[in-house]
Design a protein around this nucleic acid. Sequence first.
DNA 1: TCTTAGGCATAGCAACCTTAGGTATCTATT
DNA 2: AATAGATACCTAAGGTTGCTATGCCTAAGA
Lengths: 120, 120
Amino acid sequence: MPKNNRYFRIMIDPKLLRGSLDTIILKLLDEHGEMYGYEITQKVKEITAGEIKLTEGALYPALHRLEGKGILTTEMRSIGNRMRKYYRLTESGQEEVVQKLSAMDEFIKSIQLILNPKIA
Amino acid sequence: MPKNNRYFRIMIDPKLLRGSLDTIILKLLDEHGEMYGYEITQKVKEITAGEIKLTEGALYPALHRLEGKGILTTEMRSIGNRMRKYYRLTESGQEEVVQKLSAMDEFIKSIQLILNPKIA
DNA sequence: TCTTAGGCATAGCAACCTTAGGTATCTATT
DNA sequence: AATAGATACCTAAGGTTGCTATGCCTAAGA
């Protein structure tokens, strides 16, 4: 029994997430304007009713990568004695979201064609 | 312009495929009973109207991996002077397909919740 | 003859996720 | 007061796994 499964519920196999993480991040930032890392993990958990849990070891490197590419910018803010690093889309990030979303859409359609030939 | 894009059409970003390749292979084998490698690449291309193209460098290692796990068995057959290696699901492979398919289904639902909050 | 299609395979590379740890603050419970 | 859990950031090591490039071979067609 894996540690992260202590709630005895079925979770999404993290391997499936490979390739979709950036899209998820960008979409959430597009929707909410700005978010900090921890907030993103919580939002994903909330939306998917716990099915998808972003690990920090995946999230933070991804955020840094996207920032490095000029897709995101950051701003540090102190909340009490805590520091939060807020991320938001740059202009090129805005374009990136559109592309990523349509790419993901195409991908899902194609996968459906293979996996659910009757429906699709 | 990447080599594999010489037909000047939009293709699925191969990165999205990460994590889904095994499921695709297993589903096709489940549906067709037995298939050989090249046949799988063609079938995927056909079903998805060219959107998804499995590279051989991805497919063959994946097939060998699945065989190594006991999920697939193989049988060589000579067609004329050509050799074909046919793959089919083992019993444990049959169970694996069911699990993989429902996992993929859950995953797509969850992704939809994030990316298309209005629809889902 | 040269190219394209069919058919298999591997080595090296790169991406990136998981695991596992580290630091620190705040709140609630014991 | 001590402990635990949530909040909040981060990184290193290791492993999985797809892609690129390449190799070998046969068959068919221009």
